[in-house]
Structure formats: C-alpha cells, structure tokens
Design a binder for these strands. Sequence first.
DNA 1: ATCTAACCGAGACGGTACGTCAAGTCTTCGG
DNA 2: CCGAAGACTTGACGTACCGTCTCGGTTAGAT
Lengths: 228, 228, 228, 228
Amino acid sequence: MTAPPPTPEPAPESAPESAPKSAPKSAQPAARPRRTGGRVRNADAHTAILDATAELLEEVGYASLTMEGIATRADVAKSTIYRWWKSKGVLAMDAYAHVVAARMPEPDTGSLRGDLVGFVRELYRVGKYPLRVRTLQGLMAEAQLDASFAPLFQEWTGQRRAVVRAMFARAVARGELAATTDIDHAVDVIFGVFWYRLLLGHEHLKPSEAEVHVDRLLDGIRGAEGRG
Amino acid sequence: MTAPPPTPEPAPESAPESAPKSAPKSAQPAARPRRTGGRVRNADAHTAILDATAELLEEVGYASLTMEGIATRADVAKSTIYRWWKSKGVLAMDAYAHVVAARMPEPDTGSLRGDLVGFVRELYRVGKYPLRVRTLQGLMAEAQLDASFAPLFQEWTGQRRAVVRAMFARAVARGELAATTDIDHAVDVIFGVFWYRLLLGHEHLKPSEAEVHVDRLLDGIRGAEGRG
Amino acid sequence: MTAPPPTPEPAPESAPESAPKSAPKSAQPAARPRRTGGRVRNADAHTAILDATAELLEEVGYASLTMEGIATRADVAKSTIYRWWKSKGVLAMDAYAHVVAARMPEPDTGSLRGDLVGFVRELYRVGKYPLRVRTLQGLMAEAQLDASFAPLFQEWTGQRRAVVRAMFARAVARGELAATTDIDHAVDVIFGVFWYRLLLGHEHLKPSEAEVHVDRLLDGIRGAEGRG
Amino acid sequence: MTAPPPTPEPAPESAPESAPKSAPKSAQPAARPRRTGGRVRNADAHTAILDATAELLEEVGYASLTMEGIATRADVAKSTIYRWWKSKGVLAMDAYAHVVAARMPEPDTGSLRGDLVGFVRELYRVGKYPLRVRTLQGLMAEAQLDASFAPLFQEWTGQRRAVVRAMFARAVARGELAATTDIDHAVDVIFGVFWYRLLLGHEHLKPSEAEVHVDRLLDGIRGAEGRG
DNA sequence: ATCTAACCGAGACGGTACGTCAAGTCTTCGG
DNA sequence: CCGAAGACTTGACGTACCGTCTCGGTTAGAT
C-alpha cells in the first residue's frame, strides 16, 4: 500500500510523474508515463502472492518465511515475486498491511489525553494477535539485518509516528501544552515501551494499561513545564 | 560470561577435585564433577574464535557474520565452534561481552536521580561506538528470528533490567519513592526509549540527553504520587 | 583371529594377570615378553566391543556400522577400540570370525569331487544368512576403499583359497589329476562365481547348485587333459 | 549414457525445433520432449563435471573422490552436481562410461569360441589401465554400501551380461550347443573370474589368458552334454 | 491485422551457509 | 607406565534458499 510498485494504486503514479515532465515532448500522454504495449499485469498472481505470504506468515512465522515457499504456495514463479517486491521484508510488510486493513486509528477527541489513550489502547491490542506480533517482530529484525529494507521500514514507522505527533501538535495549538515541549521524546516513550515489550516479550501488552501509561507520560511533561 | 560452558571459568574444577583427596573415604563423592580422563580443552582455539568473532563483527557487521567466516578466520573447524556455542547469536553475545569487558556501571550515588542519570548517560554512550550499536541491533534481530536464542537474550537483558530495578528499590527503601510505584513500567520507559532509537536509528542517542529523559520520567512518577 | 593384537590368545596375558597379584613387586620376569608395568588390559571391554560390533552388524548392516556406534553400544571409549583394531574393516572381520566360529570345513573324502562338493555346498550356505552376506559384502567393499585393509582381507581370503588348493593338491598326489592342471584358475572359478553372485545379488546362492557347478568345473579340467 | 537425465542426448531438442518451422501447422508436435520454460541447461557445466570426475578418479582414486573436490575442480556449485547426479556412485559410473567411450565389443565371429575369446580378451584388457581397475573396484564397493546405487549398478552389469548371453543364444540357435545348457552359470563363470581377480588383486588379468579360460569353460559345458 | 513490449511460468544456474556426522588424534588420569 | 576415558579438531556431507538468468509462450495496446 505504501510502496509505489507493489500494490498498484490505479492512478498514483500518473500525477507525480507528469508534473516533472512539465512538457517533455509536447503531447498528451500526461496520464500514461511510458507504456506502448505489453501484457497487462496479472492481478490474480498478485493477490495470490499476498495471500500466500499472509498465510505462511501465520503458519510458519516470519523467520521461516521463504520466497520459495511463497512461490510454491501461490503457484507462481519465483521471478514473478521478485519482479514486484525486491525482498522478503517488503513483501511481508505489504502483506501485513493487507491483513491489517483496519488502519491505525487517528482519534481526535478534543483533548490530548483522550487522543493518546485511544491510540495507545489500540496499539496495545496487537498483543492479542500472535500473528501480528510475530510479523512485527520479524519486520523489525529484517530492518536490522537488511540495509536496503531499513529505510522502507523506517518510513513506515515514521507514518505512525506522524499520527501521534499530530496529536501533540494539536494540543500545543489548543494551548494545552507549552510550545517548548519535546514532542519527539514523548513519541519515543510511547512507541519505545510498545516495541520494547513486543520484542523482549517479557511482559504482554494489555490495552488496559494504556491509560496509566499515558497519564504517567503527561505527568512527566507537565512536571517539566511546571518547573520551567 | 553468562553461559556456563562457553567461557571456562579457571577455577571450577580444581577446587572440587582437591577436596575429595583430603577426605578419601568418608565424605561426599557427589561433589566431584566426574572427570576421569580426556583431552583438555584447547584454550587457544577458544579465544581465537572469540577474537575472530569480534573482529568480523567490527569489519562486516552482525548481518554478514557467518559461522563459516568465523571458522575460517579463527582457523578452526566449524564443528569446534558448534561444540561450544550452539548458535551465532550466543557466540556473538559472548564475544560482545568480552569486548565490552567494562560492565554496565552500577552507580550508587545516594539519590535515585543521580543513579539513573549515571546509568542512562553510560547507556547512551554506546551510540558513539558503531560496532556496538550494530551488534546490539543484530542480537535483538537474532532474538526475534531464532526461538532458541530468545530466552538467552532475554536473560541477558534481564540482568541489565535488574540493575535499574535495584536503584528504584533503594529509592523506595530510602523513602524517596512510594512503595506503590510501578517500577516495571519505569524500567520499560528507560530501556524502551534506548532500544527504540537504537533499532530505528531515526535519531542518535546522545549522553547529554540522559538528564532530561530521567527528569521527565521522575516527574511522571512523582506526578502520579501527588495525585494518587 | 588372524591379526596378532586383536583377539588375545588365552595364554600369554592371563598368566601375568594372576601371578603379579600374589607377588606384587618381585617375581617372574622371565616368562613375560616385555612388560615393565602399566595397567592391565581389560578383557571385558574387549569382548564388549566384539559383541557390540556383531550386534550392530546384524541390526544396521555393515554400511551403517560406525566406530562411534560401536563405542556407544559397548560403553567404551572410541580410542580403546582404535588401540586394538586399526580400522572398521579389521574389527568387523574379527567380529565376523567370532560369530562364524564354525570354521570353513576342510572335507577329505578321498575323492576330489567329494571334497569340492562338500566345500562348495557349505560355501553356498551363507546365502541363507543375510547377516553374513551383508558382512561379506561390506568387507569386500572395505577392501576396495581402504588400502590398509586390503592386504588383511587378501590374507583372509588366501586362507580359504589354501583349503581348496589343498584338495586339488591331494588329487594330483593321488593321480586323479595331471600335475599340469592349472589349479589357480580352478580355485578362481569356484570363488569367483561365489563372490560374483554374492556381490551382484542377481541370483541367490543355493547349496543344491554345488554339485552341478563342481561337475562342470571338473569336466572343464578333464576335457583339457584329454586334449592336451 | 544409460540414465536419462545425466548425459543429455544432443539431438532431441535441436532437430524438433527446426523441423516444425518448415512445416508450421501440419506435423507432429508429439516429438517435442515437453519444454515449457526454464533456463536452458548449461552443457559446459555438465561436461566440466564429468571431466573433473574422470581426472580426480585418475589422480586420487575412487575412495578419495569427493563431491566437494569435484565441484571445486569443475568450478561449479555443489548443488549443480547434486541436481543431476544423486550420488557419487552414479556420477562416477557416468564419468567412467564417458572415458571408456569405446564400448564393450560384441563380436560375432560365427563360432561361440571365437565370440567368447574376443570378448574375454577385451575384458581382461582393463587390467592394463589402473584407472579403470580402481574405478571398477570403487563402483562395486559403492554398490555394496549404498543401497540406492545397487540397482543402477546391477542394471549396468546386466547389460554386459546380456552381451555374453546373446553369444550363447546364437550358439544354441546354430546347434553348437544343446538347448539345455545352463547359460546363466556360464556367464557367471566368465564374469566371476574377472571380478574376483579384479577385486582381490591377487593376480593380474592378462588378455593372453582369455583363450585358455574360454576353452576350459566350453569343455565343461560339452562334458556335461556328453554325459548328459 | 499486425506488431511489439511487458508480462508470466518454468526451472537451471552459481553460490553461500547451514548444521551434522563420524573420523581419527591427543591429553589426562587411574590402576 | 600402559590402558582407558573422553574431549578435541577436522573434513565432508547433503540440503535449503538465495537471487539471477534464459527461455517459451501469452496478451493487449499501438500502429
């Protein structure tokens, strides 16, 4: 969904790509980048791959996921996979996004506390879905080991960070928070605790903890403000 | 250092073996760790392996570290490595411990804030050593992918957690903190932020940030108490 | 039985084992070949090894026989085996000889035909014992692959050849056969057919065939004489 | 040459591929040996493997032949070897067949004696080529130790047996031999002596002995008939 | 109506590393 | 001081996937 090539949004590439061209040659083609012919992409193969990936992710876990296995399961040639996804990590991330079609919530309750609690509660709910937990663990691992995957993963996490940052920004705009607040650190605390528990697995994440965690974070921020 | 077999403690066998001599008949033969013969372990090979691992860790990074490469570099048979370390993760962890011989500090300054700031400042200093950063990233990744390595890694991180927990426990004993404080969560915040940044790499860890981070955490805890 | 070290002749070592006990320090150097001290050989270990070998030979066959397996089964150190038998082949041959304690018959019926038929019939009977068949196959294979074992094996087969040669020699002495008879070739025919069938396994050896085979061989020899 | 996959017959693909062009619609697509895709087979790698095997067979002998060594020498990945030959034995047999491209002779001189002498003389000539001797020994050994190789080897020897059987069959057809002759046993005698000497190595095979051996065999057969 | 480029399936290729097995050697200890 | 124990190192094994490649064959838009 995020990466340009994988999930083919109908239009997504035409707009950005026509602008720069400005008026390369003259004409029309505005909409179409470059494509004079050729067989059209087989959507079946595409979804079969994503489905197979999701299934295998569930059955064997990320660590045992192999391109070969996906190809076999999807009844597709290995090269067809590589044509569209350059690595296991990218593919897994894409498949994960498909499964978790319900996107991150972006609550806007009017108060920072309300927003954060809503978000964190939802965040902690993944703990109830072993498949998702294992996939997230695997993606994080992949990002450590595959340098070419890291930026993609970072971009993905960045999007999630952005959601939370926006909450804080709104709070500042509302005057709830001082403009000097170190938002970055606050976001790090929220996601840091989440990932740390997810990766270590020493303690399961429970949505019920969300409220306390948020309160403690906000107390920390306000305490700082109070002291100046 | 943690696992019994890998790094052979010098003493463990000599002591039990001399005791029975002095009391041949009577006492406990149980103590003797049965050893009637056999070739003695080759310490050279052992250290050669650890050295090679550390070197390669530095040169190629954790992701490209291979048992085969280590064996070649150490001029040792692969199975000799497997005899003592059951996996790449365990070996890397052992080698890391050797390199970072200077252990985690356990400051006891008399105040919680002093202890935490000392510890966190030291913690954040690893950001200055790319080798260590990459190794820690790799170990965390390994723990996600290799189920048999996970508990070992968890044990290791548990030891580090214990150090911080002790600081909080002392603070509670001193009356600095309420007995109801959720220490676990506090520890999660400290390590969570640390690992999150380390793994995502979106922002470098700077020792200078330690003080602010600790203050915010303590404010959060005290705020809770004040209300609570 | 053939090689000097393996199967200890009863006499030479048993005596020293009881004598020294009665006169610990002083006595009898004369009789003893050369032995100034040292631990005495453990006969139990010795027979345990042979037994284990025979058992495993039966259970898993020669191809899957390993020194390691034998050591485990006999509850003996591997090096103890190597001390007395330099290779798997030698050991297997020794164990085989123990099992097939009933030695090759050396019939002396008064006529060449009688002698040969008796011998060949007995020879072909191994076909009824899969264990022996597989062991003989394995020994032959070993002789091809292990240059140091070949001479030993050749010596062993040489002993069996000698038995048959003797029959022919007696026949010549009796005047049954011309002195010019190519005995070597005749022996090769007997054992050649036996081994060829044993190794290829295309047809099972049956004792009932012995008579015909011998007759054909003798006809061949006499035909040559008649012409020649 | 025997097994379908290993040595790819040159013709099957080139011919059918040009022919259809000339007769686009009409003719037989049946001839085409199903090829729906896949990278084309690299003939160079294939012959390089066979060559390397033959060389190593000569240099180090069958016993010391290793797949790893072959791969290195042929400058080919080990898996490429295993893709086509499932074991060392099969590969060695194939390489042997390549080297001894001159196939077994199938003399048809008009008389049984002439046929046999011609064949046996040629058979005994391998004694002059140590490489071939050692290879044959190794193959026989392998057949004993590797159950999956045995049938292949048996098939190969079966082909050679068939050649000799045909000679006897012709003789029977000509009336040279009684129809009751035990051809199987006669063939066993010929090959039995050959292999027995080859494997034991107690006496070298000399082509000059062929004539005598054949005569003795035929005398044996005719003697039986005479009495018969 | 053809051309033509992109697609897909198949599967061989060279490669790297894996983890295991059994071999045979070396050192220590005990009788 | 020899024999037993057993820890040691080693080489090769066969396998699994990797990512690339080279085909044969399809399919649809552009000409």
